[in-house]
Amino acid sequence: MNLNEIIRRLSGKMAGIAGCGGLGSNCAMALARCGIGKIIIADFDTIDHSNLNRQYFFLDQLGKKKVLALEENIKKVVPSCVVEPHDIKLEPVDVLRLFGNCDVIIEAFDSSSEKAMIIETVLAEYPDIPIISGLGLAGYGNTNDISVEKHGNLYICGDRRSEVDEDNPPLAPRVNIVANMQANVAIDLLLKME
């Protein structure tokens, strides 16, 4: 498919991204650059200096709400991309309300309990919407351990075991690999849809 055709087809598609940290901010930028029509983003957090080692934000955005800063950054690169920001800590009811019409949902949370919440909610309530999750991205090296696993409509990107802790922090390269892998799976699915 040539680039114009890709952009034309993606312009009618909508992605929901839950979480705007390392995974969400980088995945959103990748989807916008490919030409996706609309992105719904949700996060309750503000930008901290410690986020800048991996998240798509800038020094002059410290203290800002992540959803608003991400909207700003997407618009600076792709003004035509429609961004719908929601400054909210997502609960199951919000997942259904905000993401129910999305063509694809990206799980981009940090905490394991929130990851479980959105995966279970989408599998139970919207089994037909593909959900792409990022699991296992801490530390550095071991690039070849990162892969995509398909479980029905649930896609897992990551090494599925590297948990973030004191000695295994999240760093830009592996976080970005997984975020862009999520975007790549999403684009592939979206271009196969009607």
Binding site: G22, S112, G134, L135, I156, S162, V164, P170
Partner: peptide, 8 residues
């Protein structure tokens, strides 16, 4: 069966 691995 999936482990919910933190980090994002």
């Amino acid at each position: 069966v999936l482990h919910m691995v933190s980090g994002g």
